[in-house]
Write a protein that binds this DNA or RNA. Sequence first.
DNA 1: TTGTATGCGTTATCAT
DNA 2: ATGATAACGCATACAA
Lengths: 326, 326
Amino acid sequence: VATVSRVIAKNPVVQEATRERVEAAMKELDYVVNGLVQSMQGKGSRAVGFLVYEMVGPTFADLASGVEEGASESRDLMTILTTHGNPDREWQAIQQMREQRARAVLLVGATPTGPEFVERLKRYRDFLATVGTKLILCARGPVPGVPGVASVYYENRLGMRLATEHLLSLGHRRIVFLGAEANHSTAEDRLAGFLDAFEAAGVEPVEELIVRTAFDAEPAQKALDQLVRSAVPFTAVVAARDELAVRALRVFRSHRIQVPEGVSLVGFDDMLFVGDLTPSLTTVRVPYRELGRRAGRLLDDKADPDAAELLPVELVIRDSTAPLRQ
Amino acid sequence: VATVSRVIAKNPVVQEATRERVEAAMKELDYVVNGLVQSMQGKGSRAVGFLVYEMVGPTFADLASGVEEGASESRDLMTILTTHGNPDREWQAIQQMREQRARAVLLVGATPTGPEFVERLKRYRDFLATVGTKLILCARGPVPGVPGVASVYYENRLGMRLATEHLLSLGHRRIVFLGAEANHSTAEDRLAGFLDAFEAAGVEPVEELIVRTAFDAEPAQKALDQLVRSAVPFTAVVAARDELAVRALRVFRSHRIQVPEGVSLVGFDDMLFVGDLTPSLTTVRVPYRELGRRAGRLLDDKADPDAAELLPVELVIRDSTAPLRQ
DNA sequence: TTGTATGCGTTATCAT
DNA sequence: ATGATAACGCATACAA
């Protein structure tokens, strides 16, 4: 048994001849090591938990794809769990990963922002630490006051600032912000970037144009429709993400408002096909795949447990934005 | 130890008082069962392997989402592995799942169609069977001559037949088929459906309009561009999948050909946003999420190992198709 | 270089 | 109802 174990571990002490005999027998018997027992032995599990709100859209797929790419290099296995925004499910998922003695748990996507979440995160971190599992935030910046949690994120706030500055530079002033959800890290950062742009330009944002519905598409669409009907004047719309921008497009189409002639529109994420819409959508490209890859690399045992990698974004100017007509 | 084990297993023989004491201690010590050992003990592993070509697009996300939904009900863990179409990687992935003593392995998406693949599939099946892992095909019909492999698939061929019949009924005869890749189960089925429609209508398909490039977007786009330049006449295009349809849209736009006035276009998959394109795309909706859910249910131990579930598709008629102008 | 013995954390079997 | 013990398949320290 010990020799077999050594052959499996590629321990060089075994003699060539012996190894060959063992390997022949393994093939003969269709033998495979029991990975579960290996992990149990303290070699550490191969599992990596990928916790996400929902598996939706190319942003998720790209991110997961990147992680898988990194994980597969080290023969790790990526396990995906969805939380549907339910804290109980999230806790249950953390539990499951703890049972599996996962190498790491990736918390993917936006999180709440309140102090309640900070405590929750600490609990997760400590709870996972007891079995040697580390916690990594993905697509969400490091949380102040919670060391020992690595993070890989992108210039969310700056991205939205760039998008907004683009509109301001085109002469727009009455700009709608669509999708300002509170207590939602991504939405908050993007709104902050929006406000940054106004502040830097010395322009006052119009409070009533900040649509504080939610990050979800349906309510945002309704709210925008309402706004259009209310006849409150505006000349441009910043959508918190591409899906909302597409909904905005539908609203404008239904009201026979031309984009960009009647109103300019920018999105965020650069999802698949938004460049093929009419008009093609000006948006902010986020390197989701690379984000995943970086996260995948943090799985390595010798990675800095306090790493905080920030990736750049890029404003992609297409046809949905045009200079303000006087 | 035994009592603790019984508490974990919720074995009702333990007395109320004892159980409470144990649970108190567990909380005190932040104890969690070692799931790896549980699985090793013959309880069977919780892992479910999801083998896919690539994690791309909403079709993947929907399918995976469905599987996760089903799996999480039984506390199973979905592990995603990508093969990139590389048989070696696929074999390696099978190996890994075998090491993990996975409950099941899902082979997701198209497969090759030749006899070589049939042998490969049998090898997978038998190899996995030695450790009690079952094999399930997802989004691909059952393979004749390979019993013991369940499958969940959709009316692929019929879907394309419906799409094509829609065009034929509009008067189109010179119809391009874009993306006829050989030795690719999905592409072959769709081409077959295309031909079915012609046969049923008693119309002869035009061989030179069948673009036998590949299922990939880039070569298909180039080939279509070539075809347009060659001035071979056609009045409609059937794309093997939506991504190719979107590429076709780009080609027509670059040649200033109006859709549907100059040429009608249909896709397949009903991906996100294709209804928001201009013109909105006529396509075939595939219930990917439900497909995943069904696959997730086949994970159950008492599920029929030879199950073959077929799901219906739906033709979604939008604005990219119009009657032929004489 | 190879074989033997021990331990890992759990469940199942058998006593008590 | 509970406790003691064997067994699972592997890695590792130690003996040969």
